[in-house]
């Protein structure tokens, strides 16, 4: 019994104080928590929730399989997340729509970028390529 008791004490059953190492770790935790709360409140105050603003940029156009792949990067410059964002690319010749492809991005958070690709049968370099964000829903 006595043996078990002293073991129990070593194990932290008996109340103990706080060592300098623990105080240092506690201080680090406190700083982290306060910084997190401050950051969140600051973010909420300076960047109130707004609509997403999507910019789509064509990165690459290259042959892929039987057709061509247009690599793009969509960037959300607004202050709201876009969910189920669809990116639509249209190939035109003299105003007439020849071919269209759509890609969907599940979530595009504020200030974030996501990349993807659209496939076409015809060579987009020989035609006019029109790439834009088509629509989204709020998450």
């Amino acid at each position: 019994m006595a043996g078990r008791d002293s073991e129990g004490k070593r194990d932290g059953k008996a109340p103990v104080g706080t060592s300098p190492v623990e105080w240092a770790a506690a201080a680090a935790g406190a700083v982290l928590l306060v910084a997190t709360i401050a950051y969140l409140v600051h973010y909420g105050l300076t960047k109130p929730e707004g609509p997403p603003v999507i910019r789509v940029v064509v990165e690459t156009v290259e042959p892929a399989g039987e057709g061509y792949r247009v690599g793009f990067t969509a960037t959300n410059e607004g202050n709201g997340t876009a969910a189920e964002l669809s990116i639509r690319g249209v190939l035109r010749a003299g105003g007439a729509e020849i071919e269209a492809s759509t890609a969907r991005i599940d979530f595009l958070p504020q200030e974030s970028s996501r990349s993807g690709g659209l496939f076409f049968r015809r060579d987009p370099r020989a035609l006019t390529l029109d790439l834009r964000a088509e629509g989204y829903v709020e998450p």
Partner: peptide
């Protein structure tokens, strides 16, 4: 808690260590 505490200041230390570990 991380250890057996009886004083408030030790509880507070434990909480912030827990939060550090959680992060």
């Amino acid at each position: 808690g991380i250890r057996h505490t009886v004083r408030l200041q030790d509880d507070v230390a434990d909480v912030f260590v827990s939060l550090l570990i959680a992060f």
